[in-house]
Amino acid sequence: KYKEAKESFQRFLENHEKMTSTTRYKKAEQMFGEMEVWNAISERDRLEIYEDVL
């Protein structure tokens, strides 16, 4: 289930129109921090996936 959450988060970042190569992690956290997809995984994993996607 956790792996699915990580994959969902990656797809979310890859497909969200507001995500560009210039979007900083903290800005994304402000935009999406309340969303379930954002909070479903640990911050360490979130940051790792974020850096992989951008």
Results as ranks from 00 to 15, higher is better:
Phe32Lys: 07
Ile41Trp: 01
Met19Pro: 03
Met31Ala: 03
Gln10Pro: 02
Ser21His: 15
Met31Thr: 03
Lys18Asp: 14
Asp52Met: 15
Met31Ile: 09
Glu51Tyr: 14
Glu14Met: 14
Ala5Gln: 11
Glu48Thr: 13
Thr22Glu: 13
Glu43Thr: 06
Lys18Pro: 01
Glu36Lys: 08
Glu34His: 14
Glu14Trp: 06
Glu17Val: 13
Asp45Trp: 00
Glu48Leu: 11
Val53Pro: 09
Thr23Ser: 04
Asp52Ile: 00
His16Cys: 15
Ile41Val: 15
Lys3Phe: 00
Ser8Val: 12
Lys3His: 00
Thr22Ala: 12
Phe12Thr: 06
Ala5Glu: 09
Met19Ala: 08
Asp45Lys: 00
Val37Ala: 09
Val37Ser: 00
Met19Ile: 15
Phe9Asn: 07
Tyr25Val: 05
Phe9Trp: 00
Val53Ser: 06
Glu34Pro: 04
Lys26Trp: 09
Leu47Ala: 01
Leu13Arg: 03
Gln30Cys: 05
Ala40Trp: 11
Val53Trp: 14
Arg11Gln: 12
Thr22Gln: 14
Val53Asp: 14
Thr23Leu: 14
Ser42Arg: 09
Ser21Leu: 10
Glu7Lys: 12
Gly33Ala: 06
Glu14Cys: 11
Phe12Cys: 05
Asp52Lys: 15
Lys6Asn: 03
Trp38Pro: 09
Ile49Met: 03
Phe12Ala: 05
Asp52Cys: 08
Ser21Gln: 14
Ala40Gln: 13
Ser8Ile: 13
Phe32Glu: 03
Arg46Pro: 02
Met31Asp: 04
Thr20Asp: 07
Glu7Ser: 08
Glu34Cys: 05
Glu43Ala: 04
Met35His: 06
Met19Cys: 09
Phe9His: 03
Met19Phe: 12
Ser42Tyr: 01
Ala28Cys: 13
Tyr50Asp: 03
Thr22Cys: 12
Arg46Cys: 00
Gln30Gly: 08
Glu14Gly: 06
Ser21Trp: 08
Glu7Asp: 12
Arg44Cys: 09
Glu51Trp: 06
Leu13Gln: 03
Asp52Ala: 12
Ala40Leu: 02
Phe9Gln: 06
Val37Gly: 01
Lys18Ala: 14
Lys27Thr: 13
Glu51His: 15
Asn39Ser: 06
Ala5Leu: 09
Phe9Gly: 09
Gln10Gly: 08
Glu34Ser: 14
Met31Val: 03
Ser42Asp: 06
Val37Leu: 08
Ala28Thr: 03
Glu43Arg: 05
Glu48Met: 14
Asn39Phe: 00
Thr23Asp: 04
Thr20Gly: 13
Tyr25Cys: 02
Tyr50Gln: 02
Phe9Cys: 02
Arg11Phe: 12
Trp38Gly: 11
Thr23Trp: 11
Lys6Cys: 12
Glu48Cys: 08
Glu43Gly: 06
Leu47Gly: 08
Asp45His: 03
Met31Tyr: 04
Thr23Gly: 04
Glu34Tyr: 11
Glu29Met: 02
Asp45Gln: 00
Lys3Val: 04
Ile41Asn: 04
Ala28Gln: 01
Phe9Asp: 10
Lys27Cys: 14
Ser8Cys: 14
Lys1Asp: 01
Leu47Ile: 14
Arg44Val: 13
Thr20Asn: 13
Tyr25Pro: 02
Ile49Gly: 03
Met19Glu: 08
Met35Asp: 08
Asp45Arg: 01
Ala5Arg: 06
Asn39Ala: 01
Glu14Leu: 14
Arg11Asp: 09
Val53Gln: 13
Ile49Pro: 11
Asn39Thr: 07
Arg24Val: 14
Lys27Trp: 09
Lys1Asn: 14
Leu13Tyr: 02
Val53Met: 03
Lys3Gly: 05
Ala40Lys: 10
Tyr2Gln: 09
Asp45Gly: 02
Phe32Asp: 08
Ser21Thr: 10
Asp52Ser: 14
Glu7Tyr: 06
Leu47Phe: 13
Glu4Tyr: 07
Met19Val: 15
Ala5Phe: 04
Glu51Arg: 12
Ala28Ser: 02
Glu36His: 10
Gln30Glu: 15
Gln30Leu: 06
Tyr50Arg: 08
Thr22Ile: 13
Arg24Ser: 15
Val53Ala: 04
Met19Leu: 12
Ala5Asp: 13
Glu48Ile: 12
Asp45Ser: 05
Met19His: 14
Tyr50Phe: 15
Glu36Leu: 06
Tyr25Thr: 09
Lys27Glu: 15
Leu13Met: 08
Arg46Leu: 00
Asp52Gly: 12
Val53Leu: 12
Lys26Phe: 08
Leu47Lys: 13
Asp45Ala: 03
Ile49Leu: 05
Lys3Arg: 07
Tyr25Gln: 00
Tyr2Arg: 03
Glu29Arg: 04
Asp45Ile: 00
Gln30Trp: 04
Met31Cys: 00
Met31Leu: 10
Leu47Cys: 06
Gln10Tyr: 01
Val53Gly: 05
Ser21Phe: 06
Ala28Asn: 01
Arg11Trp: 07
Lys18Met: 08
Phe12Ser: 07
Glu14Ile: 12
Ala28Ile: 01
Thr23Glu: 10
Gln30Phe: 03
Gln10Met: 13
Gln10Asn: 07
Ser8Leu: 11
Arg24Met: 15
Glu48Arg: 13
Ala40Cys: 09
Leu47Val: 14
Asn39Asp: 02
Tyr25Ile: 04
Met35Leu: 14
Gly33Val: 01
Glu7Trp: 02
Ile41Thr: 04
Ser42His: 08
Ser21Ala: 15
Gln30Tyr: 04
Glu43Leu: 03
Asp45Met: 00
Ala28Pro: 05
Arg11Lys: 14
Leu47Pro: 08
His16Ala: 11
Lys6Val: 07
Tyr50Ala: 06
Met35Val: 05
Ala28Val: 05
Leu13Trp: 01
Ile41Pro: 02
Trp38Phe: 01
Ile41Phe: 04
Ser8Thr: 11
Thr20Pro: 02
Lys26Pro: 12
Asn39Tyr: 00
Val53Tyr: 15
Glu4Lys: 06
Met31Arg: 04
Tyr50Ile: 01
Ala40Tyr: 01
Met35Ile: 03
Glu51Asp: 09
Val53Phe: 13
Lys3Cys: 05
Arg44Ile: 14
Ser21Pro: 15
Lys3Asp: 00
Trp38Met: 04
Asp52Tyr: 14
Ser8Met: 12
Glu51Cys: 11
Glu4Ser: 13
Ile49Phe: 02
Phe32Leu: 04
Glu7Gln: 13
Tyr2Ile: 12
Glu51Phe: 06
Lys26Glu: 15
Glu7Ile: 14
Tyr2Gly: 06
Tyr50Asn: 04
Val53Ile: 09
Glu34Asn: 15
Phe32Ile: 08
Lys3Pro: 03
Lys26Val: 13
Ala40Pro: 06
Lys6Leu: 11
Lys1Met: 06
Lys18Ser: 13
Thr23Pro: 05
Lys18Asn: 13
Arg11Gly: 07
Glu43Trp: 04
Tyr25Asn: 07
Ala40Phe: 02
Met35Asn: 06
Gln10Ile: 10
Met31Glu: 06
Phe9Lys: 01
Lys18Gln: 09
Glu7Cys: 06
Arg44Gln: 15
Glu36Met: 03
Gln10Arg: 15
Asn39Gly: 06
Ser42Cys: 14
Tyr25Glu: 01
Thr23His: 04
His16Asn: 13
Asp52Val: 09
Ala28Tyr: 01
Lys6Gly: 03
Ser21Arg: 11
Glu7His: 07
Lys27Met: 12
Ser21Asp: 12
Thr20His: 15
Thr23Met: 13
Met35Ser: 11
Ile41Ala: 07
Arg46Asp: 03
Glu29Phe: 01
Thr20Val: 11
Arg46Gln: 00
Thr22Leu: 10
Lys18Val: 09
Lys18Ile: 03
